[in-house]
Design a protein around this nucleic acid. Structure first.
Length: 368
DNA sequence: CGGTCACGAGAT
DNA sequence: ATCTCGTGACCG
C-alpha cells in the first residue's frame, strides 16, 4: 500500500521551520537542524538559568489567590484526572477526552527485555485507575479497522508479568494502523530494545499527535481525525517517540526525536526520514518533554548510532525463528520451516539448530 | 515481536 | 438467544 503523504503536510508559509521534504534532501541538515535546536535550547538554559520565572507554575506558586478567585472557583477547579499516572515500569499522562495517553515514558535496561512474561497470558482491559466515564473499552477497538497499539510495549516488560499486564491497560493504548503497529513501529521498538545491549539505560517517550493538513478546497488547515466506538476514542494522525541513551554514569549520550505517520510504512523508508528537532515535537505536543535535562554534549542518536531498523529478510527470519521456537506440534513446526522456502530465505545457523532441537522434542512427544 | 479473528464452552 | 472468555490458527 503506497503512502500518499510522507511529510507532515507543511508548506512554505508554515510557522514550523523544518520540513520533512527539506530534511530528506538536505542530509546534513537533519543533524545540523537537530543539533542547532539542541544548542539553541541549551544556550537558552544557560543564559536564563533554571530560575527564570516559570509561567506554567503560576497557579501553584507564590502568586496570591484572591478571595475573588476563590469565589470564581466556588464549585472547584475542573478535574481532568491525575496529570501523571504511575505504573510498575512506565509513567503516563492520560487524555480523558481522547481516551488515549498524551505521552508515556519508560526507562529500560537489558534486564527488562529478558524474562518469561508472555503476552499470550495477558489481556487488553480498561485501566482500573481511570474513571469509567473516561475510559476506552475493547469493543471500541474491535472491528474498528484500527489495532490496539501499545505505547510502552509489552516486549519491554518480559521480566515482570504484572508490569507487562499494566502495559495492556487501555490507558497505554491508542488506535494504530495495524500494518504500522506490526511493521515499522514494531521494528522501531525492537531497535530501542537493541540499544540496551550497548547502553545501560534507554529512555523512551512515546505518544500520539494530531497534526493539521491543508485542505485543497479552501487552502485552510484542519485537524481531521477519526473517533472509534461508543466512547469515540481518538485516532491520532501521527505517533512520536523520543529516544535517549545513557552511559554507565547515567549521563545522556545521544537523543533522537521522531514523528511517524499513523499509516503503513514500507521497508524502503529509513527511520531517519522521520527525525525532527525536539522543539518541533514539543510545539505540536504542547509540552516540554525534558525540562530538567542537561542537553549539553548530547549528540544526535542517528549519528552516534545508525538508526537502521531491521531489513525485511532479517525481520522475516525473526518471525520464523520465533514460530519455530514456539511450535507446540510438528505441524506448526513444519509450517514455520516451510515459510523459509516460500519466502526464499536462507535459514541461519541459529534457526537450523532450533529446528532440529524442536523436531527431536516434538517427534518424541507425538511419536509415542 | 506486533496484532486480529473464529470458534466453542459456559454463564446470563 | 446473546454475551464473555479462553484457545488456537493465522498474518506481517
Amino acid at each position: 500500500m503506497p503512502r500518499p503523504e510522507l511529510s507532515l503536510n507543511f508548506n512554505p508559509q508554515s510557522p514550523f521551520p523544518v520540513l520533512f521534504k527539506e530534511m530528506r534532501g538536505f542530509l546534513g541538515g537533519v543533524v545540523a537542524g537537530t543539533l542547532s535546536s539542541i544548542v539553541a535550547f541549551g544556550s537558552y538554559k544557560i543564559l536564563f538559568g533554571e530560575d527564570k520565572p516559570d509561567l506554567g507554575q503560576q497557579d501553584t506558586g507564590d502568586k496570591q489567590v484572591s478571595p475573588f478567585h476563590r469565589d470564581v472557583l466556588k464549585y472547584g477547579s475542573p478535574d481532568q484526572g491525575p496529570s501523571v499516572r504511575y505504573y510498575g515500569n512506565h509513567v503516563l499522562s492520560y487524555n480523558q477526552a481522547h481516551k488515549i495517553p498524551n505521552w508515556v515514558i519508560e526507562k529500560i535496561s537489558a534486564e527488562n527485555t529478558k524474562g518469561k512474561a508472555n503476552r499470550k497470558n495477558v489481556k487488553f482491559k480498561p485501566d482500573p485507575g481511570v474513571e469509567e466515564l473516561f475510559t476506552a473499552s475493547n469493543s471500541d477497538y474491535l472491528g474498528s479497522g484500527w489495532s490496539r497499539g501499545h505505547m510502552a510495549p509489552a516486549g519491554d516488560n518480559k521480566h515482570d508479568e504484572q508490569h507487562m499486564a499494566e502495559t495492556f491497560y487501555l490507558s497505554n493504548i491508542l488506535p494504530q494502523n495495524l500494518d504500522n503497529n506490526a511493521g515499522f513501529w514494531n521494528r522501531f521498538e525492537i531497535y530501542c530494545r537493541k540499544l540496551t545491549e550497548k547502553y545501560p539505560n534507554v529512555r523512551i517517550y512515546s505518544g500520539p499527535l494530531f497534526i493539521a493538513k491543508r485542505n485543497e478546497e479552501d487552502g485552510k488547515k484542519y485537524v481531521k481525525y477519526e473517533v472509534i466506538g461508543q466512547n469515540e476514542v481518538a485516532v491520532p494522525t501521527h505517533l512520536f517517540k523520543i529516544v535517549i541513551v545513557e552511559n554507565a554514569k547515567n549521563n545522556p549520550v545521544a537523543m533522537g526525536t521522531f514523528i511517524v505517520p499513523n499509516e503503513p510504512i514500507s521497508f524502503q523508508h529509513h527511520l531517519k526520514e522521520f527525525q525532527v528537532p525536539l522543539m518541533d515535537l514539543e510545539r505540536r505536543a504542547g509540552a516540554r518533554f525534558l525540562p530538567k535535562m542537561n542537553v549539553n554534549h548530547v549528540q544526535d542518536l542517528c549519528q552516534v548510532e545508525t538508526c537502521d531498523l531491521m531489513k525485511k529478510t532479517e525481520f522475516d527470519l525473526y518471525f520464523i525463528g520465533r514460530r519455530i521456537n514456539n511450535a507446540t506440534n510438528l505441524n506448526q513446526l513444519q509450517k514455520a520451516w516451510n515459510e523459509l522456502s516460500q519466502k526464499s530465505l536462507e535459514p541461519d545457523e541459529y534457526i537450523k539448530r532450533k529446528y532440529k532441537e524442536k523436531y527431536d522434542e516434538l517427534s518424541k512427544k507425538e511419536g509415542g
